[in-house]
């Protein structure tokens, strides 16, 4: 039994320490945004954020997660109140089949946390581990730039509200 912190909530998980995080998220916690693609850490569809960094949940066993914070797409926003990254992907219609998109958004979110104004080249380099077979890459690129602008204005309006 271990405690796993996901999207700000503590969960008691009864699983072997070598269980991949992805299985726990989907099977035990019913958080189905992260997808099983290859199971080998080679496609990126299972990407989630752990302590601010993009991590491949299919090759990340529970034993690595003691005391760490896991964030999944469900933790960023909801259908009625999407996070900037989710809004941006919707507004750019960046999904076709959509299977890779949750992973794309999580890796892009990790990039934007670290670098609020990434260049095209930086986005391309960062998203390299995430594969999309539909070919929506140009829309994904635009969506990440749009998310950067949305986050910027969200920060600005938040600052205005708080009088800064």
């Amino acid at each position: 039994m271990m405690t796993l912190k996901v999207n700000g909530q503590e969960n008691h998980i009864d699983a072997d320490p070598d269980t991949p995080l992805l299985y726990v998220l989907r099977d035990d916690l019913k958080l189905n945004a992260a997808k099983f693609g290859c199971g080998l850490g080679q496609c990126g569809s299972c990407t989630v954020i752990v302590d601010g960094k993009a991590v491949l949940s299919c090759v990340t066993p529970l034993v690595l997660l003691e005391g760490k914070q896991v964030t999944t797409l469900e933790g960023l926003g909801t259908v009625s109140a999407p996070a900037p990254i989710q809004r941006a992907f919707m507004e750019e219609q960046a999904a076709q089949c959509g299977y890779c998109i949750a992973g794309m958004m999580m890796r892009a979110q990790a990039l934007l946390l670290r670098n609020p104004k990434p260049t095209d080249a930086q986005i391309r380099a960062e998203l390299q581990p995430n594969l999309c077979r539909c070919g929506t890459h140009m829309r994904i690129l635009r969506a990440v730039h749009r998310a950067a602008r949305l986050m910027d204005t969200a920060d600005a309006s938040a600052n205005e509200r708080s009088g800064q």
């Binding site: 320490p17 990340t60 066993p61 034993v63």
Partner: peptide, 14 residues
Amino acid sequence: PTGAAIYVAACASC
């Protein structure tokens, strides 16, 4: 043992 668990889950599948 920690290394063994990491190996089994993160490395052995490939």
